[in-house]
Computed example of a mutant assay.
Amino acid sequence: MLSPVVAGVDGSAESLAAAAWAAREAGRRDRPLHLVHAWDRHPRRQEREIADAARRHLARRAVRRAEERVRAECPDVRLTDEQPAGPAVDALVKAADQADVMVLGSRGLSGFTGFLVGSVALGVVARATRPVVLVRAGEEAADEHLPAGDGSASTDTGHRDVVLAIDVGDPCDEVVEFAFEAARLRHARLRAVHAWHTAAGPLGLGSGDIGRVDDPERGEEWLGFLQAVLQVWRDKYPDVEVLATVVEERPTTALVRAATGASLLVVGHRLAERPVGPRTGPVTHAALQHVGCPVAVVPHR
């Protein structure tokens, strides 16, 4: 049985956007879509029966709203759901670890593009062993596509670029492969970005030129490294157009800039042997907070 694309839903606008994005992704991957709403039991035993009945009712209503949104956008998707009891992070991590991809919503920052990432989403990202995609409220199908000739939103045009943040000094196969596959599924161009900052050393972000490099020789060297890392994946995915970019800039700044106008940003997250709290690295954290497009966080060891 194929592992599903899983969407965590809670009835909010951001979770409905996540469910719709997950449905489109399920269609691209030819996978079923599984909706999960996790609810906590009431802590007081004497009040638990009535309170839990109310929470189960709210859970079913949240799932129904998500199902309606999914059916309206992707009527042919194979759809299942569940409403497990228990701490939300634990339930969603369990569901994520059985998923092809987990999709969660994040609230858009008022007046900004970007995310206000809650503790549940951060907890899942920190602990999940499968890729987690965060989708902001208001994300629509047309946002993944290039504008029409007159500048209007359209779903009939090609997909916007998939952007890969890559650390040339320590490239991770899981992260690179996810990005290439995402580009292939969308028939989109892949932009692989590597950035380094002189004070901090190399860190990963990527287009076939060198941008904003004050030291041309070092820039050529990093671009050569990046091209070498990408070559094996170009051979594996010959239909994916790849642009490799090297920038001398703080990785967090370069990442936000590179993801502007993208359909998806792909970043890595190194799994800790013993995770303590919902922690992510600085580059991933910057992506989750400030990038406007959906962000795929791919775990690796």
Rank of each mutant, 00 (worst) to 15 (best):
Q227C: 04
R250N: 05
C172W: 00
V125T: 07
D156W: 05
H57F: 06
A95I: 03
D90S: 13
L109G: 09
V298N: 00
R136S: 09
E25C: 02
R41D: 10
H42I: 09
L134W: 10
D81F: 00
A20V: 14
R41P: 11
G219Y: 01
G211A: 08
A182L: 00
R191C: 06
T113P: 02
R186H: 14
R45E: 08
R48Y: 00
D170H: 11
T280Q: 13
E174C: 04
A7P: 04
V101P: 06
R127I: 07
A62P: 00
P147W: 12
G211E: 11
D40W: 01
L16F: 09
E82W: 03
V70I: 14
D97G: 09
L35R: 03
A17G: 05
R69P: 01
G204E: 07
A72V: 01
A7Y: 00
R234F: 12
H145D: 01
V163G: 05
A259M: 00
R60S: 11
G204K: 02
C172Y: 01
F178C: 05
L16T: 11
E273N: 14
A72H: 15
H194L: 08
T80P: 13
K94T: 15
H145E: 03
G158H: 13
D173V: 12
V163S: 08
V298T: 00
A51D: 02
P202K: 03
P282K: 01
D10P: 00
A286M: 09
Q83L: 06
D97F: 08
G261Q: 07
S263F: 06
G151E: 04
V120S: 09
G204R: 07
V89A: 14
V132T: 13
S15L: 03
A142D: 10
D100H: 15
K236A: 11
A22T: 09
E144D: 10
D235V: 12
Q227T: 14
D214S: 12
G8E: 10
V36A: 08
L223S: 11
R212P: 00
A53L: 13
W196P: 08
A88W: 04
P43F: 13
A179F: 02
S12G: 14
R212C: 03
A18N: 07
E177K: 03
M1W: 01
S263M: 12
T284F: 07
R48V: 07
V295G: 03
G261D: 06
V93W: 09
E68A: 11
A179C: 02
A85T: 03
V240W: 15
V266Y: 01
V101G: 04
K94A: 15
H42T: 11
S207K: 01
L104R: 02
G8W: 14
V101Q: 11
D52A: 09
G108A: 10
D215L: 02
D235S: 14
E241N: 09
